[in-house]
Simulated assay, not measured.
Amino acid sequence: MGFSLGFVTFAALVLAVSAAPTSFVLIGDSTTANGTTPNSGGWGNGFCASLASGTPCINTAHNGATTGSFVADGFWNISLAAIRGEVAKGRRTLATIQFGHNDQKIAPPESMGTNMTAMVQTIRALGAEPVLVTSLTRRSFTSDGKISDALGPWADETILISQQQNTHLLDLHANSIAYCEAIGPDAAHRLNRLPDDNTHLNVNGTIVFGRMVADLIKASFPSQLPVIPNAQLSFNITHGIASF
Rank of each mutant, 00 (worst) to 15 (best):
S4I: 15
L5P: 05
G6C: 09
V8L: 14
V8C: 13
T9H: 13
A11S: 13
A12W: 02
A12V: 02
A12Q: 11
A12I: 07
L13R: 14
V14Q: 08
V17E: 09
V17H: 13
S18Q: 13
A19G: 12
A19K: 03
A20Q: 15
T22S: 05
T22R: 05
S23R: 14
F24H: 07
G28F: 00
D29A: 00
D29Q: 00
S30C: 01
S30Y: 00
T31G: 06
G35E: 03
G35Y: 00
T37P: 04
T37G: 03
N39L: 12
G41V: 09
G41L: 11
G41H: 02
G44V: 00
G44P: 00
N45G: 15
G46P: 03
C48T: 03
A49N: 12
S50K: 01
S50L: 04
L51A: 09
L51M: 02
A52F: 03
I58M: 13
I58S: 07
G68E: 15
F70N: 00
V71K: 00
D73K: 15
W76I: 01
N77A: 14
N77M: 07
I78F: 01
A81T: 12
A81Y: 06
A82D: 06
E86N: 14
K89Y: 07
R92G: 08
A95S: 10
I97Q: 14
Q98S: 07
G100W: 01
H101Y: 07
K105V: 01
I106H: 01
P108E: 14
P108V: 13
P108G: 14
S111W: 04
M112H: 06
N115A: 15
N115L: 11
N115D: 09
M116T: 12
T117N: 04
V120P: 10
V120G: 03
T122D: 13
R124K: 09
G127D: 08
E129D: 14
P130Y: 02
V131T: 02
V133K: 09
T137G: 00
R138S: 05
R139E: 10
R139W: 07
S140C: 07
I147K: 01
S148W: 04
L151R: 06
L151G: 04
D156N: 10
T158W: 00
L160N: 12
L169T: 03
L169Q: 05
N175V: 13
I177F: 06
E181P: 05
E181H: 03
E181M: 05
I183D: 05
I183N: 02
A187Y: 03
R190F: 02
P195E: 09
N198K: 04
N204G: 10
G205H: 04
G205S: 10
T206A: 15
F209K: 07
A214F: 04
A219F: 08
P222I: 08
L225A: 12
N230A: 10
N230S: 12
A231M: 07
A231I: 07
A231Y: 13
N236D: 15
N236A: 15
I237K: 02
I237N: 01
I237H: 06
I241F: 11
